[in-house]
Design a protein around this nucleic acid. Structure first.
Lengths: 143, 143
DNA sequence: TAGTAAATCAGAATAAATCCGATTTAAAGG
DNA sequence: CCTTTAAATCGGATTTATTCTGATTTACTA
């Protein structure tokens, strides 16, 4: 998804334009990486020093609902990135647990999962591969 | 995994036997369902009313490290069940997001994932299918 | 340009999980 | 059986991520 598309979605759905919202989207668009709410907040503060964290959380939540951001959970913390599955075909990610960097995997395992009980109403699925990217492998862990 | 196996693992690794530990394991063994720390705590309290939640969290964490319990995260909350992947072949689960009930899926999508970057060190993966089981579908949601 | 609903602020409140110092207890050895 | 000791537990404070609330500000509409 591109920044302009995201802003367009907001406009269409009747949400107001604010500089903070655009900044938030631009921050996520700048990296193929999952960011925590705190990561995002710090970066917005460059432009808006008196930012309230409520604003960040509320907007993130709105954007996830609208499909502008994708969410996952790492280390008991919500992490977010600009939606990309929405772009073309549905797919999944390899995620670096050190820095959140992602790369795409082709295909979806749901295609070959034929044995889900018939009386089970599927509402979603998660397939994620975790590990350490080459950049993070070459420096000592900061955890 | 059976209760006896779990207790055997504890003994082998030099952990002490306590009634609370056995009870915790028995509680998880009693259901094919993910339970929250709070769920587990409430059930142990039947036998041990003055239980400290530190004890429950600490033991859960130990058991996860030892491979006695499997962990996932639902609604920003840790959920646990007796390890079953360890039993025979590695596999994945369909999970009811209402009650935590699980059923097994044969096979693992990692087998057909050939396009993970070579310089990425894989440390784990998660494949879970979410939805509503037939029991929960027939009663109004309590959320 | 005034009115209005939405967005933001600032900080309190919540909830899961962890930490910490004091006390108790399982189990090994004499 | 008794003593010893490290592990386990207790009880409560603390931390951390997130949500809530009521007052204030702001983007858009007419």
């Amino acid at each position: 998804m591109k920044v302009e598309e995201a802003l367009q979605i907001l406009k269409e759905k009747g949400y107001k334009y604010t500089g903070k919202r655009e900044k938030l989207i631009r921050i996520c668009a700048a990296e193929r990486r999952y960011l925590s709410a705190k990561d995002i907040m710090e970066r917005i503060k460059d432009d808006y020093p008196n930012l309230s964290f409520d604003t960040v959380y509320r907007n993130i939540s709105t954007f996830v609902d609208l499909g502008i951001l994708e969410e996952t959970e790492l280390d008991g913390e919500g992490k977010y990135r600009l939606a990309c599955s929405a772009d073309g075909h549905h797919h999944h990610h390899v995620i670096c647990t050190e820095c959140g960097k992602t790369s795409s995997l082709p295909g979806c395992p749901m295609n070959i999962m034929s044995s889900i009980p018939e009386d089970f109403q599927v509402t979603g699925h998660k397939f994620e591969v975790y590990g350490t990217c080459s950049d993070c492998a070459s420096v000592p862990s900061h955890s």
